[in-house]
Amino acid sequence: MADQQTEPAEFSEEAIGHLDALYRGALRLTRDPDRAQDLVQDTYARALRYQHSYQAGTNMKAWLFAIMRNLYWDRFQKANREAVSIDDIGEFALYDQMRDDLGEGPETEVLDRIARSEVVDAVEKLNPLHREVVLLVDVEGFAYKDAAKILEVPIGTVMSRLHRARQQLQKDLFDYAVESGIVGGGLNSRS
């Protein structure tokens, strides 16, 4: 019993340690700094209220993200939850589109020329179901099984959403790269 519970001070300290990650996540989810702060604050309030249900030694970051994610859907997406559908854009690989522009140089060189703010915009433009999985796996580095627990979906769903999210991201980044002249559109330009 005693070793299952965390001392309140320890709990607080560990929880605060995940603040930057939660805030970043809240920013991506809400796309608004004020709403993000509110969401984070409410997440900690709920975590505090339910701290007895947290087991010491388990993944607190995942636990906090699960709380935040549920609050987010309750608050901002409740009305949309049913309506959010995932469009299938088909297979789109930025690499294929850029292959001709990549030439013989390092294949990641073109990525270095993409502005970071543009990547953030592209992530924020994703539909919420795609955005949250990119946030968990790519930004925060959660394993598929942890992401699946947080999102309450099977691992296969995590994988398929992640794949589609990345396709969408690549498509948006490609459009940006063409518009800003980073690439010429390649020989096999989009139809």
């Binding site: 970043r24 990547v119 930004v139």
Partner: peptide, 8 residues
């Protein structure tokens, strides 16, 4: 790139 982009 996705990981390092949003580092607020």
């Amino acid at each position: 790139l996705i990981r390092v982009s949003g580092s607020e």
